[in-house]
Design a protein around this nucleic acid. Structure first.
Length: 236
DNA sequence: AAGACGGTCAACCGCTCCTTC
DNA sequence: CGAAGGAGCGGTTGACCGTCT
């Protein structure tokens, strides 16, 4: 019937992990297409990438989610819906897979519908146009934690020179995006009848650098219910 | 003691988006 | 401008493990 894949599937062995780790350390992340051959692995590039990002990456945090991490996940999920990479990008050391699994196994069952995202806002954010037009945000923002989302030219030295300038701009844009998003959520919470337009938003960005400083009040009452719903599962 | 059941997590699959030519 | 290829994302699956009956 179907073609049998020439690549190995299933769980990774220690030996494979070693080969992959050594290869990534030697050649760097990115160029996943070439990694299997270079590492001498009989795995497809997707499998290698996933293994590195979800398991072998040195920045990955193991163990239970901290209270503030859970809190952040809930807040961000409320804002973003199932955009796991975006959410994980704001939680250092956690991968999209981690967050997704944690949500599905711990939170989704415990939270009542009203704790989750309002459907109207979810749909707006799930509109591919809204996010696709900000693709550098949507793709690049997880660099902070996983470091994998390199721009295309990352393999070329010349691009690194521009990184200083562009990196700053990108950081700023990234920061503004999150501020706007969260502030927008804040506004929507108080004006639940009306939806702001993501792409033409004219929100006032607060001066403070604390990403979540502006929304704490907005979320305070929600938190009380959340922790009640969670039954203090993470130490509350 | 053992089988059933449920939860968790690593991994795969299919799709979309982006970049390059 | 369109096609092709590559990279990444989210949903789903399946294996493993702990708990319950």
């Amino acid at each position: 019937m179907g073609r049998v894949s020439r690549f190995r599937k299933g769980s990774w062995t220690e030996e494979e992990d070693k080969l992959l780790r050594r290869c990534v350390e030697m050649y760097g992340e990115g160029k996943w297409r070439h990694i299997p051959a270079r590492a001498g692995l009989n795995r497809c590039r997707k499998s290698c990438r996933l293994r590195w990002l979800n398991y072998l990456h040195p920045d990955i945090k193991r163990g239970d989610f901290a209270v503030d991490e859970v809190d952040l996940i809930i807040r961000l999920h409320r804002l973003l819906g199932n955009r796991w990479t975006l959410i994980a990008g704001r939680i250092p050391g956690r991968t999209a897979n981690d967050v997704k699994n944690f949500w599905n196994s711990h939170l989704s069952k415990k939270l009542t519908p009203e704790h989750k995202l309002t459907s109207s806002f979810t749909h707006k954010l799930h509109d591919p146009v809204s996010i696709a037009t900000n693709s550098r945000w949507s793709r690049g923002n997880s660099e902070s934690s996983s470091g994998d989302q390199q721009p295309q030219g990352e393999e070329e030295d010349e691009d690194e020179e521009q990184e200083g300038e562009e990196g700053e701009e990108e950081k700023e844009a990234n920061s503004s995006f999150w501020k706007n998003l969260l502030l927008e959520g804040e506004e929507m919470e108080s004006n639940s009848t009306n939806l702001a337009v993501v792409e033409n938003k004219e929100m006032v960005v607060r001066e403070d650098d604390d990403l979540f400083g502006g929304v704490d009040e907005w979320l305070q009452d929600m938190d009380m219910e959340l922790w009640g719903a969670l039954g203090g599962s993470s130490g509350h």
